[in-house]
Each structure stands twice: as C-alpha cells, then as structure tokens.
C-alpha cells in the first residue's frame, strides 16, 4: 500500500512517522519553572509588604518587576532559551506576555522604528489583546445590565 494514496492514509502515515512532543517532560519542566516564577513574584510581594506598601500596590510592583525581568532577559537573548526548556512555564505567566511583545519588536527593528517596531510589535500578542479586551467589554456590559 502506498502511503500517498489518499489524504487519510497519508495523515495516518505522517502521524506514525512524526516524533511526538515529550509531553511528560514538558509538563514537568513547565510545572516547576512556572512555580518558580510564581515564587519569585510572591517573594517580591512579601518584600514590598515588609517595606510597608499596601496590597494593591504590592501586586502592581510584582507585575512590573516580572515584566521588566522578562524584557531584560529577552533583550539579552536568554528568555528564549529558558522558554525552549520551560514551555508553558514561562509563556503562560505575565513573563510570556512581555516576551511576546518584546520579541517581535527586536526582530522587526531592522525594518525601522515606525513600520518595523511600531507596526509589528503586536503580531504575537495582538490576538490576545483584541479578544481579551473584547471579552472584558462584553462581560462588563453584562455585569452592568444584570448585576
């Protein structure tokens, strides 16, 4: 039987031949690195609280610090290496969101600051913003109407 006889057979053939992602290893690494990111955030939180900030300000400082750290690591080409290892562990927290905006900005800098950095900065994060903001508007309207 020729594997290229029909799309169905070819699909099965490709599935059989293609290497799978090492899901257990990926999950494990994502779990502990993601946990570590959260611990770092929590440490910053405790530190701010110890210094006398109120809880809302502490949360803001945590977000800002983690974003700054992720941007710095992206800029020195370290974040992508951590991300290759940790996967969702660094992509899902706020660090991943920061990286997803900085990385196209770095990549497209060669095309200029307006049409490159400015226009392409949100190619990865754009959909998250569009649907995230749209969803929050809808939820807000519903809350306004029914609560």
């Amino acid at each position: 039987m020729n594997p290229t006889d029909s799309p169905k057979e070819y699909g099965e053939y490709v599935k059989k031949k293609a290497p799978n992602s090492p899901i257990l290893k990926d999950c494990f690494n994502a779990f502990w690195v993601g946990g570590l990111v959260c611990c770092i955030g929590q440490l910053i939180f405790f530190f701010c609280k110890y210094k006398g900030l109120d809880e809302t300000s502490c949360s803001t400082v945590v977000s800002i610090s983690l974003i700054a750290l992720a941007i710095f690591l992206s800029a020195i080409n370290v974040f992508n290496r951590i991300g290759k290892f940790a996967g969702a562990g660094t992509i899902v927290p706020i660090t991943g969101f920061a990286n997803s905006i900085v990385s196209p900005a770095m990549e497209y800098k060669s095309e200029g600051y307006v049409m490159g950095v400015g226009a392409k900065m949100f190619t990865v994060a754009g959909p998250v913003l569009v649907y995230g903001i749209s969803a929050s508007v809808i939820v807000g309207l519903l809350a306004c109407l029914f609560l």
Partner: peptide, 17 residues
C-alpha cells in the same frame, strides 16, 4: 523563521516536526 513562524527571541517551544 521571521517570515513564516515566530520571532527568534520568542520563548516558545518548536514542535519536533
């Protein structure tokens, strides 16, 4: 990679294929 996939600095994982 820049044209067809993601920026190189993006911390994602490449699929094995």
């Amino acid at each position: 990679e820049k044209q067809f996939r993601f920026p190189l600095e993006l911390g994602n994982q490449r699929t094995p294929t």
